[in-house]
Structures are given as C-alpha cells and as structure tokens.
Amino acid sequence: MARWVNGRGNLLPFLGMVLVMLAQSGSMVVIKVAMSDGINKYVMVVYSLALSTILLLPFALFLHRSERPPLTFSALCCFFLLAIFGSSGQIMAYVGIDLSSATLASAMLNLIPAFTFILALIFRMEEVHWRHSSSQAKVLGTLISIGGAFVVILYKGPPIFKTHWSNSSNKLQFSQQINWILGGIFCVGDSIVCSLWYIYQASVAHKFPAVTVIVFFQLLFSTIQCAVFALIAVPDPTEWELKFDIGLIGILYQAIAATLIRYILCTWCVLKAGPLFCSMFKPVSIIFTVFMAAIFLGDDLSLGSLIGAVIIVIGFYAVLWGKSIEENKIVKGVENLESSCHNVPLLQNRT
C-alpha cells in the first residue's frame, strides 16, 4: 500500500481526501447544531453557497489564466449539470440530517462507494475480474464498509463513553419511526446523486482541467438553483434574516470549510486519482462524525458505533489493498513493455 500511495503519486490525493472527510464530518455536526438553534435548512444552503461563490470569484478570475482552456457553451452546460447534482444532493442531505441525525447521515454516505462502483462499471471506468484477488478485495471491501455503516445504525449497544454535559435537548428529537425512515431515504438519495457527481466530475475535469473555474461555476449555478427552490419553499422574509448566533457560524463554516475548501480539494483529487478512489474515503467520515457528535452534540459513544467503525476501517483498507494490487500490475506491465522496447534492436537482420 505504501508503494501505491507514494510511488504512484497518490499521497497528496490521499491526504486531500482525509481533509475532505474531516470537513464533511464537521459539516454534519454544524448543520445539526445550527438547525436545532432555529435556522431554516434551505436558507442555510443558499447563504453558504452564495458566500462560497463570492470568496472563490477572485481565484477563478486570476488563477492560471494562461493555462485555462476556452470557456465554451458546452462547458457551461457541463458545469450546470454538475451544479444540479451538487445542489440537489445538498438539499437532500440537509433534510435528512434535520429529520434524523448527523451520525445517520454520515453512515448513509457509505453507500456512495457501492453506487460509484456500479456506475464506474457501467461507464467502463472500472473493471472487475472475479478470479483476481484485487477485484474480490474491492467488491468485498465495499460490502464490508456498507455493512459496518448499518451496524452503527441498527445496533447501538451499551454506551462506552458518556458526555456529562449532554441533556434531553441534545438527544434525538426524531424518535418517531417515520422521521427516521424519511431521513434515511433522503440521505440515500444524497448518496446516489453524489455518486453521479463523482462519475461526471471525472469526465468534466479531464475535458476542462481548471479546478477553480469548475468549482466556481458549480457554486454559482448551485446558488441560483437553490435560491429559486428556497424562495418557493420559504416565502417568509423573517426566515431570511441573519443574526449573530450559531446559525451565522454554521453558514460561515459551510461556506469556507465544508463547501469551498471541500469542493476544491475533492475536484482536484477526482482529477488526480479518479472517482472510485475518492468515493472510497466516505467510510472514514462516519468515524469522524461519531466522535464529533459525541463531543459537540453530547451524543453518547456506544459499543455499536465503535464496532461499526472498526468494520468500516477493515472494508476501507481492503478496497485500498485491491486498488494497490491493480496499480502494481499496471506499473509492472509498463516497466516490462519499456524494457522489451529497449531490448529490440533498431535494425534487424533479415535472411
């Protein structure tokens, strides 16, 4: 694995995706806290996207101007479609977190590797050779990670760590089964849309390799799309008023860390390492979220969460091992090809 991470130039994408998952896990907790404080989820989406767009504008205008390909109508259409995936996924994620919990929303993201793997097979971006141990590891690792996520949801177990400051207001307010189910459905929808985003993002990034421009137009179009939806869903002007409270802190965090930095890092990592590599980091986010929820939301850390996290890590590294085997085979194949080319004489004697 070390050879795969270092030798193939994937160390920076590896570290980048870890930071992406940290930002996303923090986002789950911040969203839950902000919405519990009273801010409307749709308003929060619009304000955070708008602020991210404004902050990114100078970078999109002046960064790598000479190296950027021409901005065509076709490229703008691609960015608009990416924005549809991004904005619809964000709205579904916010609704899912509002109805359920940060931990459940993070756990449902572990469905993304399975959806991405299936889509990558359909679009011939990945191959499965059932007799090869690398393909078996990728498939089994994905299933194990998903299984670990459901362990976290379905088996709580006795608490192994309690937060003494937690109170009833921080406990689950959505004990109704229907809210839990609906929240899970919306989070699954977010996972499906995110998988589509990963696949399409890889295609767009190779055609238009200017990360800041791609992210800027995604955020711009997402802001417009979400604003139209939010103005219809939230017609009350008082809901749009900003106050100096946890809601404003949530918007700032969402705009800077969870949207701007995460989008740029994720887009760059998809360009450098591919969609499946990036999607496989989703299981790591639930580990971060469980501990953040215990610290900042007062949620007890239970035995089920710990067991599920361990299972997720096992599946996660099984997939990485499978990918490393494939990378090593590619390296050996290229080295053998280059060696055979060097050994062929320029002039061959013919009899």
Rank of each mutant, 00 (worst) to 15 (best):
A2G: 15
L12R: 02
P13V: 03
V18Q: 13
S25N: 10
M28I: 11
D37P: 07
I39Y: 07
I39L: 12
K41C: 03
S48Q: 13
L49R: 00
A50E: 07
L57Y: 12
L71P: 05
S74H: 11
A75I: 13
A75N: 03
C78S: 13
F79M: 04
F80Q: 09
L81V: 13
L82Y: 02
G89M: 15
G89V: 01
I91S: 04
Y94N: 14
G96I: 01
G96L: 03
D98Q: 14
A102F: 07
T103R: 05
L104P: 02
A105Q: 08
S106L: 10
A107C: 12
I112D: 06
P113E: 05
F115Y: 12
I118W: 07
I118A: 13
L119T: 06
L119A: 13
A120S: 08
H129T: 06
K138T: 09
T142L: 11
L143V: 13
F150L: 11
V152G: 04
T163L: 05
N170G: 14
K171T: 09
Q173Y: 01
F174H: 15
Q176I: 12
N179P: 09
N179E: 14
I181Q: 05
G183S: 01
C187A: 12
C187K: 00
C187E: 04
V188K: 02
V188C: 15
S191T: 10
I192L: 15
C194L: 15
Y200F: 13
Q201V: 00
S203N: 04
A205M: 14
H206V: 10
K207I: 05
I214C: 10
V215H: 07
F217K: 06
L219Q: 12
L219D: 00
I224E: 10
F229C: 08
V234F: 07
P237V: 01
W240H: 07
W240N: 08
K243G: 11
I251V: 14
L252D: 03
Y253C: 10
T259A: 11
A273Q: 00
A273C: 05
L276H: 01
C278D: 00
V284T: 14
S285Q: 15
I287W: 10
I295G: 08
G298M: 06
S302M: 09
L306M: 09
L306V: 15
G308Q: 09
A309M: 10
I312E: 08
Y317S: 10
Y317K: 09
A318T: 15
L320V: 03
S324Y: 08
I330C: 02
I330G: 07
K332L: 09
N336I: 04
N336T: 08
E338F: 04
S339T: 08
H342C: 12
V344P: 04
Q348D: 04
